[in-house]
Write a protein that binds this DNA or RNA. Structure first.
Length: 283
DNA sequence: CCTGAAACCTGTCTGC
DNA sequence: TGCAGACAGGTTTCAG
């Protein structure tokens, strides 16, 4: 659920503060706690402590849907998957007593200044990796959709080589890094393309339109501080701007036709049957 | 290369 | 009211 705009929002908060997050740049790790073993993708809590305690946060970045926390000699990579969230707070409450951890806190970094970073993850799908070489984890990720180096020409070349349906292709993190179910549905709607259309059949003009649509919905999502859906509220507002996602049975904002929902590759897919039709450019 | 299903999880909603 | 069952979503893994 946290997709590129949600992760970007969290990363910006960790860098400059916002909402329930204060900046963590320059903080040094004093202790590490792990309450669900599998949240740590590999290695043990002992190794994590040995390598992280005493290290200082040098930078916080995003790559695809990963949060990348750069320490002196290590990188801590966090993938929030579906229900993960990050929180910064004091380890001691206003009452002077140690602040208890929250219900689904899985991994906690305590800093020397008395604050802490908590990785909270209800569904336990989220993962953290500690590595000296981030490429080891991030290496297979595809292009960043907002990277200016991704020109319409390059994008069309990438698209035209793939014989997959647009929806699963755009969800594929080795193709483009950062899109998830919400932003793919929204982008396909804006581009007026059917989720089942085969990628290689797009004309250069259509693929350019798709790239523009992807960037437009991502930028809008970032401007809204991401989307807050289900019970995971992160303060974002993009959920109020959905055109098709979770709008089954409601009118299309463009033409009034009833929005439909179908399953594509096991994923709920929302679209307007009038605005998004399969076009056959080969004829 | 591509598709589909199952697994990993828990909270919430639906229906009996 | 209670309880079983379906469902949601991101990714990996495995079979075809």
């Amino acid at each position: 659920m946290p997709e590129l705009p949600e992760v970007e929002t969290i990363v910006r908060s960790l860098n400059s503060g916002c909402g329930n997050i204060e900046p963590i740049l320059g903080k040094s790790v004093a202790q590490v706690k792990l309450t669900w073993k599998r949240t740590l993708s590999r290695g043990s809590i002992h190794t994590l402590r040995k390598r992280l305690i005493g290290q200082t946060v040098q930078a916080v970045k995003r790559r695809g849907k990963f949060v990348v926390i750069q320490f002196d000699a290590q990188h801590l990579l966090i993938h929030l998957r579906m229900s993960g969230d990050l929180r910064v707070e004091g380890s001691v409450g206003e009452n002077g007593k140690p602040r208890p951890l929250q219900k689904h806190d899985r991994l906690v970094l305590e800093f020397q200044d008395g604050s802490r970073l908590a990785f909270n993850d209800t569904r336990k799908f989220g993962r953290a990796w500690l590595t000296e070489n981030p490429q080891e984890v991030l290496g297979k990720l595809g292009t960043e959709p907002l990277d200016p180096a991704l020109t319409p020409g390059k994008f069309h070349q990438m698209i035209s080589q793939r014989k997959r349906q647009l929806k699963p292709l755009l969800l594929d993190q080795t193709f483009l890094a950062g899109l998830g179910n919400i932003y793919v549905d929204e982008a396909l709607f804006v581009a007026q393309l059917h989720p089942l259309q085969i990628a290689s059949t797009l004309s250069p003009r259509q693929s350019e339109g798709l790239l523009k649509a992807i960037r437009s919905v991502l930028r809008k999502g970032i401007r809204c501080n991401g989307a807050s859906i289900d019970w995971v509220y992160r303060g974002g507002q993009f959920q109020n701007n959905f055109c098709v996602y979770q709008r089954e049975g409601q009118p299309c904002p463009a033409c009034g036709t009833t929005i439909q929902r179908m399953l594509v590759g096991q994923r709920g897919t929302h679209y307007c049957p009038n605005c998004q039709q399969i076009l056959n450019n080969n004829l």
